[in-house]
């Protein structure tokens, strides 16, 4: 085990995988000498050379489209997009090609592509950098959607993504790039997709989060403890595939569920989770499922405004207390 920040754990994953598999190469804006907008690829150009760490023009659709082509031709490219908001420019390539080519070609063509992108508020970078749209990508069948909340998962899940035959949307919350955690050193360490993680056991309420919102959930659980409430905190880790089994088992034990996400509530992924809990555990619920989400506004810049737009641990505590 080594204590690493999430960005360093991600870099370790890239390094180890590039050493393991010579088909892996990296494409993205400023990923070479600059080291990536969030310093994830720092040092990789020096270690692996320009053939495998390629700076690209500012052309998101182009980068992803080239990655799709290289993946179809048998390579294992990774594409870095600066932020999830910029990925809109590549949405056609991601949705109509990467997610669908295997199906449309009757299983002939595979697109084993890893697309990394940063998401989330708190940096602060305002409305066209900071949204949390994991749920948008989770809407599309054919994609894996991965959103780690800590350094160890970030490493294990990214390594797992390179071993998959499908396209993986790998979403990194900017507020936790610098958060340290214990990370296994074993080069064969991977975290399986579709396995939620119970970060804290509890019997009174289930709090479900993913990506950055897991941290609000954990802080809320600590606060709730002072009120004598034992919260179980579940980190989904991947939205596609989704581990509802762990969530449902927990809800059947605690009889209450709160979903925390930075995403907008309206049409967000929390709505999907809530619906599935109702469908699968309605008779066990002592209260309606609650959602604590981002406010229904574009992300504002000023700190006070941004905090107001994001869900806080106090919001989570309030939601739990309201259902007890």
């Amino acid at each position: 085990m080594t204590e690493l920040r999430m960005r360093d754990a991600l870099r370790e994953a890239l390094r180890e995988e590039m050493i393991r598999d010579s088909r892996i190469f990296l494409l993205g804006e400023d990923i070479g000498a600059y080291g990536g907008s969030y310093a994830v690829t720092k040092g990789l150009l020096e270690e692996f050379g320009e053939e495998r760490v390629k700076d690209t023009p500012i052309a998101e659709s182009g980068i992803v489209g080239v990655g799709i082509g290289a993946a179809m031709a048998g390579l294992r490219p990774m594409v870095e997009l600066m932020t999830i908001n910029f990925s809109f420019l590549a949405l056609e390539q991601i949705v109509n090609s990467a997610a669908k080519l295997h199906y449309m070609s009757n299983g002939q063509i595979r697109v084993p592509l890893v697309i990394r992108m940063a998401s989330g508020g708190g940096s602060p970078l305002a409305a066209t950098h900071s949204h949390s749209l994991e749920g948008l990508y989770a809407h599309f069948p054919g994609l894996n959607v991965v959103c780690p909340s800590n350094a160890a998962d970030a490493k294990g899940l990214l390594k797992r993504a390179f071993r998959d035959e499908n396209t993986t949307i790998f979403i990194e919350h900017t507020a936790i790039y610098g958060v340290k955690g214990e990370v296994p050193d074993d080069p064969d360490f991977v975290v399986e997709f579709g396995k939620a993680n119970i970060l804290r056991a509890g019997s009174d309420v289930t709090i479900v989060g993913y990506s950055g919102s897991v941290h609000q959930a954990l802080r809320a659980a600590t606060l709730l403890e002072q009120d004598g409430i034992e919260a179980e905190v579940i980190d989904l880790r991947t939205l596609r595939p989704l581990d509802m089994g762990t969530v449902i088992a927990s809800v059947k034990k605690t009889n209450r569920a709160v979903i925390v996400e930075d995403d907008w509530k309206f049409g967000g992924f929390g709505g999907e989770l809530s619906a599935q809990i109702m469908e699968q555990a309605f008779d066990w619920l002592d209260a309606p499922v609650a959602r604590v989400s981002g406010k229904d506004v574009p992300m504002p810049y000023n700190r006070n405004l941004e905090f107001a737009a994001l869900p806080s641990e106090e919001d989570v505590v309030e939601a739990v207390l309201a259902m007890m």
Partner: peptide, 13 residues
């Protein structure tokens, strides 16, 4: 869209 896929295939080659 296939122009980009072609560039990617060529890059791989």
């Amino acid at each position: 869209t296939q122009f980009l896929h072609a560039a990617g295939i060529a890059l791989g080659a």
